[in-house]
Amino acid sequence: MEITIKEQDNKGFAMAREDGKRAGMMTYSVAGKDHIIIDHTEVNPEFKGKSVGKKMLYEIVAMAREKNIKITPLCPFANAMFKKSTDIQDVLKQS
């Protein structure tokens, strides 16, 4: 599975593709030079159960670590993943 991250203006997304098909997308808003807000995750039904959402989230987390930015997960899926995955909580924005 290939995951690409693109950003334009104050929006960004991670897109997952497999065998030329779009498997899912996770979108975020840029809330400052060191802060993004993950606002939506969608996975195409035929890719359910393949950890597509988790893979996209981990790519965004890797990008956040590289750029030294923090993440606020407003999306219910991303929020749940941050709560149960201690290995990514270092990029979680504290309130």
Rank of each mutant, 00 (worst) to 15 (best):
F47I: 04
N79H: 15
T72I: 05
T86R: 15
K93Q: 13
G49E: 09
M15I: 09
N44L: 14
Q8I: 04
M81I: 04
L57C: 02
I69L: 09
V43M: 01
I37N: 15
E66T: 09
K50L: 11
A62T: 01
I88Y: 01
A62M: 06
K6N: 11
K6E: 12
N10R: 15
A16P: 02
G24L: 00
V43S: 01
Y58C: 10
I88L: 11
K67P: 13
D19C: 09
D19L: 13
N10V: 09
A14S: 09
A23N: 00
P45C: 03
E59Y: 03
G12F: 10
I60L: 15
S29Y: 14
D19P: 14
K93P: 05
H40N: 10
L74C: 11
K11R: 02
S85T: 15
S51L: 11
H40S: 05
M15A: 03
E7N: 03
M1L: 00
A64K: 05
Q94Y: 09
A14H: 11
T4C: 05
K55V: 07
K50F: 04
R22I: 12
K21P: 07
A31L: 14
L57E: 00
A64P: 05
H40V: 08
V30K: 02
E2G: 13
L92V: 07
V61Y: 00
L74V: 05
K67G: 04
M63W: 10
I5F: 04
F47S: 05
K83P: 09
T41F: 09
